[in-house]
């Protein structure tokens, strides 16, 4: 479904702030893979997701989604294949627009936007039913401005928007990091439900090792711009925090498994 081949990305090349964020990353996701991504600060997790989403062009390498080479495709064109939820709850929705309007925008992802009505009556009914599944009471607030919602509600809405039209790839960039533990658990639960229901191919960054172990069928860990650990199948199921930390110190060559890694 997703094929990443040898991608490199350098920020601020030629300056004192030069940072090689991705150093030849290869990654292939099979259809329906739910991959969790962990790693310390600056390991390249978000950079990897942004590269796939096309926020900026990569320096080298290629990215293919479902057989389509998207390496040189603009961000808005790739959006046709990709659903995204960001770390910042403000980023995934338009605060000054209504809940139903936001959903209607998402329903038209990847389609030409012409002079037909931006939202139809039938759609509203459909959205009401969908919002009910979130169990946040949003179904009664269809015409409320999204800016009035809490962070957790906004993330749940963004998740719904990202999957309203089945994406070939779902990118979750620490989408629960800005939420309180209880809300985070709820959003993660919703994520699991939707991904499972639609069998979505998913890349989920998390700062929480336990979440990374508990979710998905495959786990990768990044370190200094490279994928250093890739665990799947039975091995993934049997993974514990201790074995993961052990694996990490073996790969990185350092004895002390960084606390930062565990804590985010």
């Amino acid at each position: 479904m997703l094929e990443i081949k040898g991608i490199w990305k350098t920020f601020n090349a030629g300056t004192v702030n030069e940072k090689v964020a991705l150093k030849g990353v290869d990654l292939t996701l099979a259809d329906g893979d739910f991959v969790t991504v962990i790693g310390g600060n600056g390991a390249g997790k978000s950079t990897l997701l942004n590269a796939v989403a096309g926020v900026w062009p990569v320096d080298q390498g290629s990215i293919t989604i479902d057989g389509v080479d998207v390496t040189h495709l603009a961000e808005y064109k790739r959006a046709k294949y990709i659903g995204r939820v960001f770390q910042d709850p403000m980023m995934g929705t338009a605060a000054t627009m209504q809940i139903d309007e936001n959903l209607a925008l998402a329903a038209r992802r990847g389609r030409f936007r012409g002079l037909r009505r931006g939202i139809s009556r039938a759609e509203r009914q459909e959205y009401r039913a969908l919002l009910e599944t979130l169990d946040l009471g949003l179904e009664d607030r269809l015409t409320s401005k999204v800016g009035l919602l809490s962070g957790g509600q906004r993330q749940a809405l963004t998740l719904l928007m990202a999957t309203l039209q089945r994406p070939k790839l779902l990118l979750l960039d620490e989408h629960t990091a800005a939420l309180d533990p209880k809300t985070a658990a709820k959003v993660l639960d919703t994520t699991e439900k939707i991904v499972g229901r639609d069998k979505l191919t998913t890349l989920m960054i998390t700062h929480n090792m336990r979440d990374a172990i508990a979710h998905g069928n495959r786990l990768i860990m990044m370190y200094e711009g490279r994928i250093v650990i890739d665990v799947s199948g039975q091995q993934k199921k049997e993974l514990t925090v201790e074995t993961l930390l052990g694996l990490f110190s073996k790969v990185s060559g350092s004895d002390e498994a960084d606390d930062k890694l565990l804590l985010g």
Partner: peptide, 9 residues
């Protein structure tokens, strides 16, 4: 950001 993520040019 949101607009581009929803495929809007």
């Amino acid at each position: 950001n949101m607009a581009r993520a929803q495929g809007i040019n």
